[in-house]
Amino acid sequence: MTIMLGGFGLCGIPENLIAAVIRKGVKGLHTISNNMGVDGFGMGLMLEAGMIASHIGSYVGENRLLEKLVIAGELHLTLIPQGTLAERIRAGGAGIPAFYVPAGAGTIVAEGKEVRDFDGKPHLMERALRADVSLIKAWKADRHGNLVYQKTARNFNPAMATAAELTIVEVEELVEPGELDPDEVMTPGIFVNRVVVGPEFKKPIEYRFIKEQGER
């Protein structure tokens, strides 16, 4: 089974749905998410539970266990450019089977892909991504599944909400239809199949500014 999980780092991840998937104890999952949580939180917990067989993402540098499993050949990791990942998901939700982008031309990302020149520049053909289930985090929802996200917790969530057979959303607040201004709805309810209110949100912060600004 293929699962998409929203979030960037630990921001805007469906932390309660991740906990529910772990309680269910399923194995052999193929996951699609920009990152892989950290050791001890987010998708890192799914990894520790041995549920993930393969992963597609753009950056997984915060997870040592993943690095170990990949180097040992125990988990199949596919790293792709972040913008290409976002667009492949968007295309998956929008019924566009493939498209061309310049990112990755002339690199190992191009291996096995059709290369075509447009306006004198090489572009790679990229295929759309879809999943069986998308696990999404939004700030507010109504019973139609209309969603509003908060700040940078939006990230991959709206695109992923469109690209699965079953889209499950966890929210901080469920409101009645009519309470969301139609102008503020970011994901229309047509894309959403289930909404749950998360009982608790830990929302850890991954990095803080220390010493010089920007230095970790």
Binding site: P81, G83, P102
Partner: peptide, 19 residues
């Protein structure tokens, strides 16, 4: 990346430099 040593990922770097 450093093959066999560092598994992190390109993040948005490939998209940024191809723009």
């Amino acid at each position: 990346t450093i093959p066999g040593k560092m598994v992190k990922g390109m993040g948005g770097a490939m998209d940024l430099v191809a723009s």
